[in-house]
Structure formats: structure tokens, C-alpha cells
């Protein structure tokens, strides 16, 4: 069974009005457990819309979406919240950390929504931050950290619930190349440990880190294949 099975989905904004926008047009896609897929496309191509639908943050206007064989379209909002909490870890370009909370508290948040008791969730959040090399910054707020560190907190938050899927939307977009490489290495390591990674990017070089590249253009999948060349990052990350 495919982990993600998308069948002919379309997303149309302002449907039936003069300002109608077709962000996704009849997209079908299957992703298996453990894959590292890069969704590559230019700005406005529909890749973020696809990510929002795959991440259960939005619903398609038409078509069907099955997650581990279950129809997402028919799910109630509370079930979708649970799916986002337990099955998907998000890594955003803008980090999306809550500024009023410390790194540890930010990582704890998804665990709180899971109802895990305080002592256990503190331990899990602590371990997640240690795994991204931030043991010394646990009690720092996002504003007291560099972009690379903030993104590592976001990764720790995404992996703290041990979800089967990580959705990374331009995760290196706001980082310098050194910090970006570190983040990519972490994603590669996570994939090596069995987590399915969906990397949304406009950067062809970054996309080469994935095992499979989907190119999206004008809301349609233009190509679906293997990376063209071996990435330096891949060589460094996958021993």
C-alpha cells in the first residue's frame, strides 16, 4: 500500500468567478514509505498548494487523497488535527516557531496536543533537541537564536512525535549555505532512519539530494524521475 496516494486532485481558488485560479490541475501521485521525494517547481507553480494538501492543511477542490489507504477528504476536522499531529512533521521556510516560547517549549507543543504527560514530553523534547545539536540552547527563545538554530528547533519539533512523514517547505530558503547544508544533511539522515521526506523546493541543486524528483509547473506534474546527478550533500550525508 502507498503511504500517499493522490488521485486526480485539483485546487481551484475563487471557482466560478472572473478571478478563478487553478493552483493544481488533475495531479496524481503515489509515494511509498521511506521515499525522499523532492517537489521541484518555480514560484507560483503550485508546489506549496500541493504541500498544503498533502500535509492535511488544506483540502482539494476535486480528486481524492488517501493516506495509508484512508480517504482524507472524508475526515472530520478533529481527525485531520490528529493526523497532522501524529503522522506529519512540518518544516517551514520561515521556521514558524512561537516567539513567546523557549526552544524546549516549542518542541514540546505537538507532544502536549498528543496528551503526553509533562515528565515524558519534556524528556522527548529534550532528546529531540539533543539530536539536532541544540542541547545548550534549550531555554533560549527563537529571537535569541540564529536562523540555522531556529530551523534545527523546527526539525526537532517535527521529529519529536516520530511521524512517518516530514514535509519540508523550502527549509533552507532563509539560511546561508553552511546552515542550509546542515539542515539538508539532517533530512537525509532522517530519511536514512526510515522517515518519508517530502522536500518542496525551487532549487534544482537541493532537489538532487532526493531519491526522486517531481517537477511541477502550472499546477501539473511535468516530470517524475530520479535525480540527474549525484549531489555533494548526498555523498556527504549518506555514508
Amino acid at each position: 500500500m502507498d503511504l500517499i496516494d493522490v488521485r486526480q486532485i485539483s485546487k481551484i481558488y475563487h471557482e466560478g468567478t472572473p478571478s478563478e485560479v487553478k493552483a493544481l490541475d488533475n495531479v496524481s501521485l503515489q509515494i511509498k514509505e521511506g521515499e525522499f521525494v523532492a517537489i521541484l517547481g518555480q514560484s507560483g507553480s503550485g508546489k506549496s498548494t500541493l504541500m498544503n494538501i498533502l500535509g492535511c492543511l488544506d483540502i482539494p477542490t476535486y480528486g481524492e487523497y488517501y493516506l495509508r489507504g484512508k480517504a482524507v477528504n472524508d475526515m472530520r476536522l478533529s481527525v485531520l488535527s490528529n493526523i497532522r499531529n501524529q503522522m506529519i512533521g512540518f518544516i517551514f521556510q520561515g521556521f514558524n516557531l512561537i516567539p513567546a516560547l523557549t526552544a524546549l517549549e516549542n518542541v514540546e507543543l505537538p507532544l502536549i496536543y498528543q496528551g503526553i504527560k509533562p515528565s515524558e514530553r519534556k524528556k522527548l523534547a529534550h532528546d529531540a533537541l539533543v539530536s539536532v545539536g541544540l542541547e545548550g540552547r534549550m531555554n533560549h527563545r527563537p529571537t535569541e537564536m540564529s536562523g540555522g538554530q531556529q530551523q534545527r528547533v523546527a526539525i526537532a519539533r517535527a521529529v519529536s512525535t516520530k511521524p512517518p512523514i516530514i514535509l519540508a517547505d523550502e527549509p533552507t530558503g532563509n539560511l546561508d549555505s553552511k546552515a542550509g547544508n546542515e539542515i539538508m544533511k539532517m533530512l537525509i539522515d532522517l530519511n536514512g532512519a526510515g522517515t518519508t521526506i517530502l522536500l518542496i523546493t525551487h532549487d534544482n541543486h537541493l532537489a538532487q539530494c532526493a531519491k526522486r524528483i517531481l517537477t511541477i509547473q502550472d499546477g501539473k506534474i511535468k516530470s517524475d524521475g530520479l535525480p540527474e546527478k549525484s549531489s555533494g550533500l548526498l555523498e556527504g550525508g549518506r555514508a
Partner: peptide
């Protein structure tokens, strides 16, 4: 609003 969006993305339900 953004904070609410972040919370929803990481699993907060309406009740939360």
C-alpha cells in the same frame, strides 16, 4: 493568527 496557524499545523484541534 500565525501562531494559531502554527498550532493547528502541529496538531491543535478547535477545542485546544
Amino acid at each position: 493568527t500565525r501562531e494559531i496557524g502554527i498550532r493547528m499545523a502541529i496538531g491543535a484541534g478547535r477545542r485546544d
